[in-house]
Design a protein around this nucleic acid. Sequence first.
DNA 1: AAGTTAGTTTTGTTT
DNA 2: AAACTAACTT
Length: 673
Amino acid sequence: MNGLNPDQLDAVNTLSGPLLVLAGAGTGKTRVITYRIVKLIQTGTPRERILAVTFTNKAANEMRERLMPMIDVKQKTPQPHDKFKPKYAKNRFAEDDPQPTVSTFHSLCVKILRRQIDKLGYPLKFAIYNRGDQESLARTVLREINVNDKMMAPNQLLFHISNWKCKSLKPGDAIMQSESDAQHLAAIAYQRYQRQLKISGAVDFDDLLLLTEELFRTHEEVRSEEAARFDHLLIDEYQDTNTSQYRIVKALASQHRNLCVVGDDDQSIYGWRGAEVEHILSFNRDWPDAKVVRLEDNYRSTTSIISLANTLIKFNKTRHDKVLRAARPGGDVPALRQYDNETVEAQETVRSIQRRLEEKGREPRDFAILFRTNEQPRPFETELRKAKLPYVLVGGMSFFDRKEVKDLLAYFRLLDAEPDDISILRIINKPPRGIGKKSIEKLLDHSVKQKVPLWDMIAGDAERPKLTSAVDRGLNGLVESIGIVKAQMGGLSLVETARLLIDRTNYKAEIEKTYSEPEDRESHWAVVEQIVSALGEYERSTRKPTLSKFLDKLLLGDQSPDDDKEKQLKKNAIALMTMHSAKGLEFPEVYMVGLEEGILPHKRSLEDDDAGVPEERRLCYVGVTRAEELLTLSMSLSRMKWGKAKPTNLSRFVFEMFGKTDSPNYARRKRVQ
DNA sequence: AAGTTAGTTTTGTTT
DNA sequence: AAACTAACTT
């Protein structure tokens, strides 16, 4: 345990009872968590009785990577294939060697639900709907109740639904409590949305938490059984817990009370998806005997950067009082640059990076360009390309949002006994089989009216509505392909099954139809191959591999063919990302761009001044504290909107940071010329 | 000639 | 994603 300061040691050594670690940015939070787990093991806690929960898979992977070398893991006996690919052997431990569990909330819940599925009282098929699936379901639901896009867009509905879900509000309650017409409409749609999910045996991401929480509430024996699995519970990024997660934590920790939560209320930036800072602010109310440890020594950034961050965050009224102390003295004072328009902003930023690369001996990986919204990176990408500088756009489309991935996963689901409707509809005409909108409508209509599952009808187990012979032929073709695969899959490995499926359904034709350029075709086909190799990897590393478990894993992001981007980051490229996705990362040189009113703080957050602006301020704080040595802030004096250049105002946060005024309102009045 | 499907264009874009 | 338009099927 060398190299830890007294506060960190205190947090590591407080091994029993509730503990709140208030860890500011760059204070070695991750180290404290890992060391604490090591200490627990050293003092005799059985490994398998330790559970650490993170919010993202990335965080979980990182924690595992840090932990494994420190706790002496029995390696899995190398398999023949591992000899050729040693990277697969890394971090793979023997199955009879118990290890601490490091998991995200979502995969934790899936495990619990799988174990307790009989208590659930309804046939959950673990089809987990991701954003795209949710959207198409929302669209169908809205159409069913005759609501057009103008009245309520699918996204709006999903926003309402997720708001209700993170407060564990059931559709019935939502209808009762709705205050406006729009809310009432959304509540009715919510009811149908849930019903449809239930019929398909599907859940969305929120449901995973919600169902677990409900199961704990209604079945005490389930709660105590699951709680008894662990003696120690550690939660990272506690400021990001929503109500469901908060209750699950409470339910799991109430017996042993060995709960350690780590977080920073100043970095709570996910309020818009249900996180409540109150949970970390009032930790002492739930656990009155909780010990509180504050980590305030920042080892990441220079004094100039930290003092800027401290000045900014003081403008937030409700927070745990703590001040970051920089361990690295001095440093260049962050600069503020103003440019005429966003193109110049991008050009000059890239030029500045180029200069630093040449003059200061920096590497591309030392730089990050942080922005607020996803429309901002475009000009920067253009300029970086022109300058031939390597860059990675982090975030953006995740691997699972790629349509090839979704299509293939949908095809995989068709091999299940009762595939869900969304999956069927996704690939029913991919590649084109002559089944168009009208025929699909007829099928759906028939399925609802006759109460026949969609697949039974398509597969010919139930009567089909009258369709043209071309459509019938198309459907039969699909059923036949699936049938062939199903018949053979018993004797095949998962990879062989997948290959056969892709081959039989002629998925390649879909890619060739969509992309005419050979380059595009290749890159999109490569995605398909990636999935198959991920499947192979899963098959090799799991004792009883099944396709449906693989699908869960993929959806939950447990496995990551997604690490493509991370590899690139490691491979030495300039990082372009939103301030949201920058949380937890650090870079020697950070450029925060587009610091304008309406962007940061975002205009949507201004509608709700009480909660919105402080959260945007925290987001800005997160951005500032990413920088180790050099921070450059910039804004563009005009920005294109609807094809016209519109003047902009400097963000109020810049005024706050540089102490030009005490009043946050100053920025609103002052126009920068 | 009507009804469908396939392919193209327009529109609208937070986190 | 919706709205059009051209092409195809029966």
